[in-house]
Design a protein around this nucleic acid. Structure first.
Length: 864
RNA sequence: GUCGACGUUGCGUAAUGGUUAGCGCGUCAACUCUUACCAAGUUGGAAGUGCGGGUUCGAUUCCCGUCGUCGACCCCA
């Protein structure tokens, strides 16, 4: 009945199955259906990106949820897309131009942007095809890009709305400036790194005038100083407050001011105030009316100081300034190297220059308040809850958000300036008055990706999609971007959608680390390529490995061996299904009434039900590891190792019992494959179709548990059967009897134990022949109420048997002692709960019985 | 600097105030047998709660300290 090849080759089936799914339109959501919606928007990967193992994990989780919900009858929408990644993308294209000896300025803005679109068409979005390899059941008909027309309109709309409400403003501030990318950066685009710098004491003022020593790590910025600050309570400097001191080289008199923020213990206790090149100094300058002196151009080159240092790069100038100071005897102590942490551009690692400039900002306080409240009042749940403090930490302490970028690739700020400094914000469909020119900057990419959960559904239009699928059900992402992106979506979603949250649950997972729990990085050389793993072991194996390692909010380790292990699981599943089908497993007609089935069939149905419950509840709770473990052990241990082995004897005997078992076997595999489908979509589909002749697992119904009445007694009976078989196997193993060797044995106690019907199965599995007339029992194993006597005709290894029994005895005696100590402890007896005391008493009784039994067995062994 | 997390067999992890601390990979041993599975499989085995103190009848679990690892945030010029 089946043509399944004898081994499983993932690459033979994956591509074809995915194409068939697409062709059938299974992933396309219908906004007009009566089904309840279940929506996930993909955290949009970068248009320049390619699939790394973190994406693979993120997508595996999302796909598993979506596929399960789809099977449960939800109108499931998983919406894919990408963001335009302003700086990263612009850098890629600029690098290409640089290779031809050109810069973007040679092309001009319009041509350059055209070039970027061309690049996107040619090489952007490689990751989308890689998602297909993974089996992602996303709705490709709804693929979105943050620079699309619709999403751009959303950006304009929200900009205007925020501006009109006074939540966007333009101001001159100190911002993080990258002198290489020539753009402003937000706080989160700056990475702090420890570097070896210098810390130098410098004396200001000439002999005969006021003099004061400051200390700095950035000597070159002295040229832009507007004041020197001291602590008002510092006795060393109290008399100097209010006086002025001469700043060398620029020959400017600057005041000595007093500010509490100055730490008398640090450095010299006197701080230079460079208002235009340091955020703290900026604050102080505002408090004390210190002038802002800009001493560098946008490329970080000294300019406008009127000194010999003009034209030098900031780091060259640093050396030159120190040399000059030293020559002039103004240097006191010098600490070099001086380790301190300095901000670097996330994209190009250039040291960030704090720079005074006019930028656009979002006033986040009221918005962040709402974003925090949505979680505080339970509208949005963060899973796991332990991650909540991190979220609050962030949203409750957010600085205003600098959203303008001096780039060409991105959404251009919709503000136009008139000839006399007039300013208008131009919304969608509006146009600027004649003679106005548009702001040349673009918006931060996060500004548009913050709109993702609703801009992708058509907002600001009131589309059917928006009505059906917003708010989205769950957002799945790594905890590492909880603040970067999630907080921004909360802010934007609550604002744009009148307080309706963008998602109900934020399900956070961890990072994928290497086998030893170390962070993967190119410099460490411990990165892994998900595509390579898919090639070698199949997508299902990679998905299963990732899902099986995923505990909410915690990092997971990954090693190639684990992926190979999952591949082995897939192979096992393949062969077990082949076995089932070869033996006539089917799903035709109703499942027989459980009470008409043999105990083994009843037992496996019950284990199936338990597994369904476990998998279902754990998937719903994002407990992927537990769900995977449950289905893995059911499939391998219960089904393959026990059930299939036990059916062999049933099939060999044939008859009505075998016919019933074929139906049960079909049902078990049918349901097992459904359960596993969200996590391993390909192999399950490939097996399920020939087994059931159904249309597709993608649209098959999710299993529902139907517990049996006598589950417990059946479980007890099969448990006894398993113990009996295991003990016989162990005996055979201890005795060094070959697996294939058949030996004669007499089994007693089966009738009393309720297992008389299974003697044939036991003998089949353990290769025991019935006792004949010449049977000569030479060894005995007691297993509870069962006794197995073997005819080994002198072949018994008494030493091995004695060693084993002695060891068992020691273990049980230790247990007995533990129990006795407790029971003899007056405090324990007085204070421990009754159930616990009862348990310990029963334990003691059990130990005594075991000791008696083992002792007797030892005594019965022939002397060595 | 501030805050946080974590320390369970060789490695990665799970659970738990009270029977015998579970699982995967690895490892050791034996086997590969009639109806599935040899880049595999079967069977059996060995091996673990960092250290010190406290609370408790009882701590791997709760508390404190310590050591170690990792992370986040911030920054003092």
């Amino acid at each position: 009945m089946t043509e399944l090849p004898s081994s499983f080759t993932p690459s033979d089936i994956e591509g074809a199955l995915y194409d068939a799914w697409l062709k059938a339109g299974y992933f396309t959501a219908n906004p007009h259906s009566d089904k309840k919606p279940f929506t996930i928007v993909i955290p949009p990967p970068n248009v320049t990106g390619s699939l790394h193992i973190g994406h693979a994990l993120d997508m595996t989780i999302q796909d598993s949820l979506i596929r399960m919900k789809r099977m449960k009858g939800f109108e499931a929408l998983w919406l894919p897309g990408m963001d335009h990644a302003g700086i990263a993308t612009q850098n890629v294209v600029e690098r290409q131009l640089a290779a031809q000896g050109k810069s973007r300025h040679d092309l001009g803005r319009e041509e350059f942007v055209k070039k970027v679109w061309e690049w996107k068409a040619e090489s952007g979005g490689a990751i989308l095809n890689q998602m297909k390899r993974l089996g992602a059941s996303v709705d490709w008909t709804r693929e979105r890009f943050t620079m699309d027309e619709g999403l751009s309109k959303a950006v304009l709309t929200i900009f205007k709305n925020l501006y009109d409400k006074g939540l966007i403003y333009r101001a001159e501030r100190i911002i993080n400036w990258c002198p290489r990318c020539l753009t402003a950066l937000s706080d989160i685009e700056v990475e702090h790194q420890e570097i070896d710098g210098e810390f130098v004491q410098i004396t200001y003022g000439d002999a005969g005038e006021n003099q004061i020593s400051i200390a700095t790590t950035r000597p070159e910025t002295m040229l832009g100083d507007g004041a020197v600050a001291v602590n008002p309570n510092d006795p060393r400097y109290r008399d100097m407050i209010g006086k002025t001191v001469r700043l060398p080289y620029v020959d400017r008199m600057i005041p000595i001011i007093a500010d509490e923020i100055v730490d008398p213990e640090f450095g010299t206790g006197a701080v230079k105030v460079t208002a235009a090149h340091d955020p703290n100094d900026f604050e102080m300058a505002v408090r004390h009316n210190v002038p802002f002196v800009v001493i560098m151009n946008e490329e970080g080159v000294m300019a406008g100081t009127g000194t010999q240092f003009d034209g030098m790069d900031r780091f060259t100038a640093r050396k030159a300034v120190v040399e000059q100071l030293r020559a002039d005897g103004r240097i006191g102590w010098e600490k070099r190297p001086y380790k301190h942490s300095v901000g670097h551009c996330q994209r190009c690692s250039t040291i960030v220059e704090p720079r005074l400039s006019k930028q656009w900002f979002v006033k986040v306080a009221p918005l962040a308040q709402a974003a925090g409240d949505a979680v505080r009042n339970g509208k949005v749940k963060i899973d796991p809850v332990e991650m909540e403090p991190r979220y609050f930490d962030w949203v409750d302490n957010m600085h205003d958000w600098c959203i303008s970028r001096q780039l060409w690739w991105g959404h251009r700020i919709p503000v136009w300036y008139g000839p006399n400094d007039e300013m208008v914000v131009v919304g969608p469909g509006e146009s600027a008055p004649a003679g106005y020119t548009q702001d040349s900057d673009v918006l931060d990419t996060w500004f548009s990706s913050g709109l993702w959960p609703f801009s992708t559904l058509g907002w600001p239009e009131q589309t059917a999609d928006l009505k059906k699928f917003y708010p989205t059900s769950v957002l799945v992402t790594g905890y590492d971007i909880l603040f970067f992106w999630v907080a921004r979506m909360m802010i934007m979603g609550l604002f744009a959608m009148d307080g309706v949250e963008p998602f109900g649950v934020i399900a956070l997972h961890g990072l994928v680390r290497d086998k030893h729990g170390k962070k993967m990085s190119k410099s460490r050389g411990n990165t892994v390529d998900p595509l390579e793993f898919m090639d070698k072991y199949g997508s299902d194996a990679l998905r299963f490995t990732l899902a099986r390692g995923a505990n909410p909010g915690t990092d997971q380790a990954l090693a190639e061996e684990w992926v190979a292990g999952s591949r082995n699981f897939a192979t096992k599943l393949w062969n077990a299904s082949r076995f089932a089908m070869m033996n006539g497993a089917h799903v035709n007609g109703a499942l027989p009434e459980p009470q008409t089935l043999n105990h083994i069939d009843q037992w496996i149905l019950n284990r199936l039900n338990e597994t369904i419950t476990e998998v279902d509840s754990n998937l719903e709770a994002f407990e992927f590891q537990k769900a995977c473990d449950a289905v893995y052990h059911f499939a391998w241990d219960d089904v393959c190792d026990w059930y299939l082995e036990l059916t062999k004897d049933v099939f060999a005997r044939g008859g009505a019992e075998a016919e019933a078992t074929k139906r049960v076997l079909g049902h078990v595999f049918d349901q097992l494959l459904r359960l596993l489908h969200p996590i391993m979509p390909f192999i399950t589909e490939a097996l399920w179709k020939p087994l059931t002749h159904g249309e597709s697992l993608v649209v098959a119904q999710w299993p529902v548990a139907t517990p049996l009445h006598n589950a417990e007694s059946v479980a007890g009976l099969v448990g006894d059967l398993q113990t009996l078989i295991t003990e016989i196997r162990r005996f055979r193993n201890d005795q060094g009897i070959k697996t294939s060797a058949k030996i004669a044995a007499r089994i007693s106690g089966l009738t009393e134990g309720g297992l008389s019907a299974y003697e044939s199965s036991v003998r089949f599995i353990t290769k025991l022949e019935p006792a004949t007339e010449t049977f000569n029992p030479s060894a005995k194993v007691e297993i509870g109420r069962f006794v197995v006597e073997f005819d080994l005709t002198g072949a018994i290894d008494v030493g091995a048997e004695r060693a084993r029994l002695t060891k068992d005895l020691a273990t049980i005696e230790k247990d007995k002692k533990t129990a006795e100590v407790k029971l003899n402890n007056e405090n324990f007896m007085a204070k421990a709960p009754m159930e616990v005391v009862k348990e310990i008493r029963e334990r003691l009784d059990f130990c005594n019985a075991e000791i008696e039994r083992i002792t007797a067995l030892l005594a019965s062994l022939p002397k060595a």
